[in-house]
Amino acid sequence: MHELGIMESAVDAALREARAHQASRIHRMVLRIGTLSGVEPDSLRFAFDVVTEGTAAAGAQLEVESVPARAWCAACAQEFGVESGFIYVCPHCGRLSGEVRQGHEMELSRLEMS
């Protein structure tokens, strides 16, 4: 529901970077979105066209890279990747983990411009 606002700040950041690099056109934008960010990639894509209209990013390609969650198991003292879902069970000892190490990301990670 707030994906529009998040996309606005993504496009703002991209336009700012493009200006700093003396670029007049953005061709491609890559966003990294964690599975725990609460942001829906499809809604972001939908907002992209609306937000970029009339800007240097109009017509650009948007790529949304999903960042899988990683959690920390205190008992095994090691990190583990979460394949899918939101129940984080340590693959080594089977304990539940509440310590998230990765998956909250929401960032502009790459820009292609000219």
Binding site: I6, S9, E17, Q22, S24, E112, M113, S114
Partner: peptide, 24 residues
Amino acid sequence: ATLAAGPDGGAAVRAVDLRVPLLE
């Protein structure tokens, strides 16, 4: 950008890697 300009005279596409948080 001028040095890297393509043969058609248009500016070449450059890529930069960033880490700009969207809810900064």
